[in-house]
């Protein structure tokens, strides 16, 4: 198993993808968090004392995990999809014909990779947001314990999303397919579903909305996303509270496990050529 995990790391770091992806993500997060912080800061310096502009630090610092989880999904999926795309799964399965060991190693290797990309992404949001607030003369909130707790949770959420990526990779197998699916689902399908289900007058749907992967992720990340704010205000009316941190984490992990198991069963007995 250790051999298989070592091999997975060598595969990941021996092509250019990992740093191109990290660079894209860090740049994107810096811009988003910096821009958002500067906007909030700019507005509040124009209208001092406007309480609707307070409490935005956590949203700014959490913008990465709330809107950019496609990056860890790609990191997790790539270990599977790149091997099938370039057929290097052939030498891999020759070297380790027990396919469960290979796929298990991919999942385990994804954990530190997710952790690393989570640290990089969260740091980018803290730096971009912190700079944005500092430049516009607004308190950064970086001295508050809750900021750092949320940062830690954000890293954790990234890690779990990487595992979701491994499962998606096994299920979809096409690199482009995973990216398109992840983007379409996280940016389009889920927000509509989530908002729609939260606003309905059915308590069951209100409750179910909290179990969507993005909602679970937001809960895991400390409830810092804009969606969470909107849906919380919507659901407080219907009396359904969002999931707690641990509940959210377990639900998201559940998605990873279910996708992984289905993907494994669909994929594993197939001939490779």
């Amino acid at each position: 198993m250790i051999a298989a995990i070592t091999s997975e790391f060598r595969k990941f770091f021996s092509t250019r993808l990992w740093w191109v992806l990290t660079l894209c993500m860090v740049g994107y997060f810096l811009l988003m968090s910096g821009g958002m912080a500067a906007t909030v800061g700019g507005l509040s310096s124009m209208s001092p004392g406007d309480s609707s502009l307070e409490g935005f630090e956590s949203v700014v610092y959490g913008i990465g995990v709330a809107s950019g989880y496609v990056f860890p999904v790609i990191v997790g999926a790539i270990g599977v999809t790149a091997e099938y795309r370039h057929h290097t799964i052939v030498p891999t399965f020759l070297a380790q014909p027990r396919r469960l060991v290979v796929m298990g190693a991919k999942a385990i290797a994804a954990l530190p990779m997710g952790l690393a990309i989570g640290v990089a992404g969260t740091a980018a949001c803290l730096i971009g947001g912190g700079l944005g607030f500092a430049i516009t003369g607004v308190p950064t909130g970086l001295d508050q314990a809750s900021t750092w707790r949320n940062a830690g949770l954000s890293v954790l959420a990234f890690t779990v999303w990487t595992l979701v990526g491994v499962g998606l990779g096994l299920l979809i197998i096409s690199q482009v397919g995973v990216i398109v699916f992840a983007l379409a689902f996280t940016q389009l399908v889920e927000p509509i579903l989530r908002l729609g289900m939260s606003m309905m007058s059915s308590p069951v749907l209100n409750q179910l909305a909290q179990y969507l992967p993005g909602a679970a992720s937001d809960s895991l990340a400390g409830g810092t996303s804009l969606y969470q704010m909107i849906t919380v205000s919507a659901t407080t009316v219907s009396g359904v509270p969002p999931l707690g941190v641990w509940q959210g984490g377990l639900v998201l992990l559940g998605y990873a496990v279910v996708l992984g198991v289905i993907g494994y069963l669909v994929r594993i007995r197939r001939d490779v050529a």
Partner: peptide
């Protein structure tokens, strides 16, 4: 079969473990 973006040595290193 090889990953086109991987060097010859890295291809072997990935199998070495």
């Amino acid at each position: 079969v090889f990953h086109p973006g991987r060097s010859a040595l890295n291809h072997l290193l990935m199998l070495a473990p």
